[in-house]
């Protein structure tokens, strides 16, 4: 039995997943996490280090890591790559001026060996803002169609209204589950 198979078996037992949330600062990562967990989002500060949240959803135990996206913190992102099943990339859809920055950071991440097996969910967040770009525009700006290395999906959402957060997470879980738990 290969190491990978053992790992799969172990995870199958616990049905546990590790999700990593990254994105530029101000994208809304922490707000998404708290909203998804039904917590108050009005007191959230810019993240100085990281937050971990463990929650149950559809019988899965999710370990969600939310890491601060300030420029000075991005070099630490690598410390959180290990054993990531799903990568959630959060985009501020109204921040047109930093979309190029956003594209570059994402494409660098996708080259990371330790993230190679992870499923990618892109949240085009802040869709409630009048100036938000559509998820199609974000998809183009981030050149998502060029991604061949990962399963990916983009979902337009709003952490403030909660719109589509569940849809996104459910897609991610389904994709990961199909990969990990059904393998023999």
């Amino acid at each position: 039995m290969g190491l990978l198979t053992i790992l799969k078996k172990m995870k199958q037992k616990e049905r546990e997943m590790r999700l990593l949330m990254l994105g530029l600062d101000n994208a809304g990562k922490t707000t998404i996490l708290k909203k998804f967990n039904g917590e108050d989002v009005s007191t959230i500060s810019p993240t100085l280090g990281f937050n971990i949240k463990t929650l149950e959803h559809r019988g899965f135990k999710l370990n969600i890591w939310d890491v601060g996206g300030q420029k000075s913190l991005r070099s630490y992102w690598r410390n959180y790559f290990e054993s990531t099943d799903g990568l959630v990339w959060v985009v501020d859809s109204a921040d047109r001026l930093r979309l190029e920055d956003c594209r570059q950071e994402l494409s660098a991440l996708l080259l990371e060996e330790r993230l190679a097996g992870a499923t990618l969910l892109v949240f085009a967040n802040k869709q409630d803002l009048p100036g938000a770009l559509s998820k199609e525009a974000i998809r183009e700006a981030l050149a998502l169609d060029e991604i061949k290395s990962h399963h990916w999906c983009i979902i337009g959402c709003s952490a403030v209204t909660g719109e589509n957060l569940l849809t996104g997470v459910d897609w991610l879980l389904d994709d990961i589950a199909a990969r990990i738990f059904t393998a023999d």
Binding site: D25, N26, S42, T43, I44, S45, P46, Q70, K71, S72
Partner: peptide, 26 residues
């Protein structure tokens, strides 16, 4: 505001009401 995120800013005065936190970088 709820959050203030300040970058690459110099010699500036901010008269602020912030309900969570203000941060500065560079």
């Amino acid at each position: 505001c709820q959050q203030l995120r300040t970058h690459h800013t110099t010699d500036t005065q901010v008269y602020l009401h912030v309900t969570s936190r203000a941060i500065i970088e560079d």
